[in-house]
Simulated scan of single mutants.
Amino acid sequence: MKKAAPVKESGLGMMPANSNSWNIETHEQFLLSELLPLVIGYAKGNRHPSSAAALASFITLSTVLQSEGFTRNSLIASIDASRMDIHNAPEVLQ
């Protein structure tokens, strides 16, 4: 398997954010129409549990976020926020 380029070389760190970049609703269509079907389709196609593919994806994405400066505490807070009604979450997570 080809190893991914480090984040600095990939250009991810250089992408400017727009005013909607951090709003999860901005990405909802992509998440539901592309990302989830891709992960689930991969799992089914390779006879893996979907939770195993989702966990591998999560670990990989959390690694990218940590390399971009997200802290362990901010990632845990994001996980906790996903378990509650987001409208009752602390403002910084909404």
Rank of each mutant, 00 (worst) to 15 (best):
I79M: 14
P90N: 09
N46V: 10
V39T: 05
I24Q: 01
L31E: 07
H27N: 08
F70L: 14
E9W: 01
E28V: 01
S74K: 14
L75I: 15
R72I: 04
F30N: 09
G69T: 15
I24H: 00
M1S: 07
Q29A: 05
A81Q: 05
L61T: 15
I24E: 06
P90Q: 12
P16N: 06
A17Y: 08
I86T: 06
M15S: 01
R72C: 07
L38T: 11
L93I: 03
N20C: 01
Q29H: 03
L32V: 06
A43W: 02
E68W: 04
L12R: 03
L75W: 11
N23Y: 09
E9T: 01
L36F: 03
S51F: 09
M1A: 11
M14W: 03
I79R: 01
W22Q: 04
K2P: 08
I76C: 00
N23Q: 11
T60G: 06
G13Y: 02
P37I: 11
H48T: 01
L93W: 07
T60I: 09
F70T: 14
R47C: 13
K44C: 13
S33Q: 11
K2C: 00
I76Y: 08
N46R: 13
K3I: 11
N46W: 05
N23A: 07
P90C: 11
P16E: 13
L55K: 05
S19R: 02
I79P: 00
K44S: 13
E25I: 08
S50G: 09
M1H: 05
A5P: 02
P16Q: 09
F58V: 10
I76D: 11
E9I: 05
A56D: 10
T71A: 10
F70K: 12
G41V: 08
A54H: 06
W22K: 00
I40W: 08
D80A: 08
L35T: 03
S50N: 14
N18Q: 02
A54G: 13
Y42V: 04
E28I: 00
V92C: 04
S33Y: 05
S57V: 15
L93A: 03
V64Y: 14
